Amino acid sequence: MTENRLDTILAQAGNRNNHDQYGSVSTPLYFSSNFRHPSLEEVEASDPHSGYSYSRLSTPTRDVLQDTLAKMESGCAAYAVSSGMAAIQLVFSLFKTGDKIITSDDLYGGSFRYFDYLESHYNIQFTKWNGTDYDELQQLVSPDTKAIWLETPSNPTMKIIDIDKVANILHTANPESLVCVDNTFLTPVYQQPLTQGADIVVHSATKYLSGHNDLLGGAVIAKKPQIAEELEFNFNTTGVTLDPFDSWLLLRSLKTLSVRMERHTSNAQKVAACLSNVPCIEKVLYSGQGGMVSFYLYSEDKVRQLLDNLKVVAFAESLGGVESLITLPAKQTHADMTEEARQKLGITSTLLRLSVGLENPDDIIEDIVSALGESLGQENPSPSPYANIN
């Protein structure tokens, strides 16, 4: 029999696992922080697979979740951690002072904040790449390059990066270098970076993987055992592990990931198309898949009017949940960047990021249009300076 397809892996998550003696279809939740040893011989054998001892090291519930995370991203091992930033920190525990790393230039603002910290405190050397010019990337990469860090689509301007092309450039220069991809926006439903040449995938599991705006979590998935071995040591040593209850909640949420992503996409496609016809909206940015849409308004007054008058869409941080959320990146997720850096990327005071939820799409559209005091169908004014952002 061939390997199960993604939809089946997700729907069957936790069923027929080896951690439950009663044949439960839904994985039980194990709250225990520690476990009895059957004998001294087991302890003396120091066999990590002989049983459970302490929940920081492993728990049955988290193990089932991690098995599912690895399968869904076609990896050899996965690690469930306490937040998306904890996932990023776990990956960067692989590097040391003086290492040279390339990042795409449009990322979650918290990533840049952490990279700035690593550069100032640990002299890890970061170089930004614009994410579109592969000839430039060829020039930036050297045999000393240890890794490249990508988001695709990027956050918040929705740049699409060819993972396979990036991996070929990097691995040709240094076969031991790591291609690391944040797959939070598209999830493995639409993108599986490890099958496209990447070495490590990360998720803010708070977002689409959990999908209900009710937990914090992160995930790191490794392609090769040698990478996984070092990640596992750091994972257990630093204690960034996800607790059993949130592991159970996340595992439960993964069962509906495929159907949720289909609805997020169909809703976002309709919302993006309609917003492009709203007179006070300059430009709509959408990758064509997933639920993330960004758009520019013509004035800051319209931004305030929109955010103060929404009735369905919530003005709140985060993304990927069943409820639609909207944020102002320049003042929220990317506020720690310099004004110059934000302007260069097009993260202006009139750029909004919309996480399209699972409500009826017509209600989402009507809510935004009504809050703006606009109507559909009129021609837009002249294009903005940012109209060519992809």
Rank of each mutant, 00 (worst) to 15 (best):
A173R: 11
D105E: 14
S111K: 11
I102D: 01
L178Y: 07
V189L: 08
D135E: 13
G131L: 05
C180I: 07
K71V: 04
D162S: 03
K159P: 03
D106G: 10
A78H: 05
K100Y: 11
E119M: 11
M85C: 14
W129T: 00
F92D: 02
F115P: 03
P188V: 09
K71A: 13
D164V: 05
K71P: 02
G75V: 02
I148Y: 01
Y190D: 04
D67V: 03
S74H: 15
T127V: 15
T127G: 11
Y117V: 12
F92E: 01
T132G: 08
N168V: 12
L137V: 02
V181D: 00
M72R: 01
G98F: 03
D144Y: 14
D67Y: 01
G110F: 02
S74C: 14
A173M: 10
F95M: 09
A173D: 08
N168S: 13
T145C: 13
F95N: 04
V166G: 01
Y117L: 12
L140H: 05
A173C: 11
V179E: 02
I160Q: 11
T61L: 11
L118H: 06
P175V: 13
L140W: 06
F185E: 08
F115G: 01
A167I: 04
I160A: 08
T97Y: 12
V179S: 00
T184C: 06
I102S: 05
Y122S: 12
L150Q: 00
C76P: 04
S83L: 13
T68L: 11
S154P: 00
T132D: 08
Q138D: 15
T97F: 10
R113M: 15
D182Y: 03
E176Y: 10
N174T: 10
R62E: 07
D133R: 08
Q89S: 14
D63Q: 11
S93F: 05
P153A: 08
Y108S: 07
S83E: 12
Q138G: 15
T61F: 12
A87K: 01
V179K: 00
K128S: 14
D133W: 04
L137W: 03
D67Q: 05
T184I: 06
S120L: 13
E136S: 13
L170E: 04
T187S: 09
T103V: 13
Q138K: 15
I88S: 04
D133H: 08
T157C: 09
N123T: 08
V179Y: 00
F95S: 05
Y134V: 09
T59E: 06
P156Q: 00
K128Y: 13
S82H: 15
T145Q: 07
T187P: 03
D99C: 09
I160E: 09
P156G: 02
T187N: 04
C76M: 10
Y134T: 14
I102Y: 07
P156N: 01
N123Y: 10
A147R: 00
V179A: 04
L140Q: 09
D135R: 10
D133K: 03
C180F: 02
Q138S: 15
N155M: 11
E73K: 05
A70C: 11
A86W: 06
K165M: 06
Y79K: 08
V181M: 00
W129I: 03
P175Y: 15
F112Y: 13
M158Q: 12
S142P: 09
I124P: 00
I163E: 04
K165F: 11
I148G: 03
F92K: 02
P175I: 10
P175Q: 14
S120W: 02
D116Y: 07
S83D: 14
P188A: 07
A87I: 03
L137D: 01
L69A: 07
S142A: 09
S111C: 13
